[in-house]
Amino acid sequence: MRAILAAAVLAAMPFVLGAYQLSLLTGGLAYGLMAASLALLVGHAGLPSLGHAAFLGVGAYAAGLTAKHLSESAVVQLGAAVLAGVVFALVTGWFAVRTRGFFFLMFTLAIGEIAVQAATRSGRVTGGDNGLSGIPVSTLFGLETAMPYVVVFYWWALAVVAAGFAVLAAVRRGPLGAAIAGTRENEARMAAFGYSVPGVRLAAVTVAGAVCAAGGALVAQKDTFVAPTHLGVGVSVLLLVMVLLGGRDSLAGPALAAVGLIALRDVTSGALGDKWLLVEGALFVLCVYLLPEGLAGLWRKRARAA
């Protein structure tokens, strides 16, 4: 019910916001979805990843290359991105799920950095470090001819983000989600029940990777540009921070943190010049002390009190 209400309010935003704010919010929603997908790994599966941006980048490059060479349809590009995300998740996750905790963190960091190098050094395909340019603007069911593109694209992004959230929520609630949580809590018992622990973990990585790649497609379509920095540790850290600020056991929390952090950066970097990073550093410190469960803790506390 709340989700529907939130979607309705968000859908009305084009009537409230200007073009720039709308594009900022579009980016915020895409990052929100990607942060929520990472929360599935970090919170639900107990797999802290420092290479999640690789999925963003794989999805973005897949969508951008599809747009450039195959189809200008946003839906086709999205499909290509999700497919690429699944393949990338299966190939890298197969190895990654053998490690745990801090070692998983570092293994995924290695995957991300190797992906950055691969994108940088495949200049013929990816445009190298100067990025993939010449991506055409996506078509959106012909609606873009009737209305301003930023508005149509915002609704498209909102629809994709809503669908992605629905997938994440369904997985969390369903039998796979229970199995994933089980491997986090007690590997030995899950194995005794006949589950393949690496298999369950790989499924978690694949779902999170596919959803994140969908977010990556939105980034590529919004900016009609992708660069190797999209895959790098800087973005991975940002996504992880969004999860921790929002609350790792939640989907809405990280999404909210993503929108909030992007808005905060926008305001502070404009107003403070090179001092905006100090505000961000202080925010991280304060949040650790004041919001131990992240933003999600705020409404949980409320619910408990009621």
């Binding site: 709340r2 968000l10 900022l24 809405a252 929108v259 909030g260």
Partner: peptide, 23 residues
């Protein structure tokens, strides 16, 4: 509550520069 926070975040995003848009 979740909705209220979401709306707050959106308002925050909208607040950046706000009026300057129609300048």
């Amino acid at each position: 509550m979740r909705f209220a926070l979401l709306a707050l975040a959106v308002a925050l995003a909208a607040g950046c520069g706000g009026a300057a848009t129609q300048q």
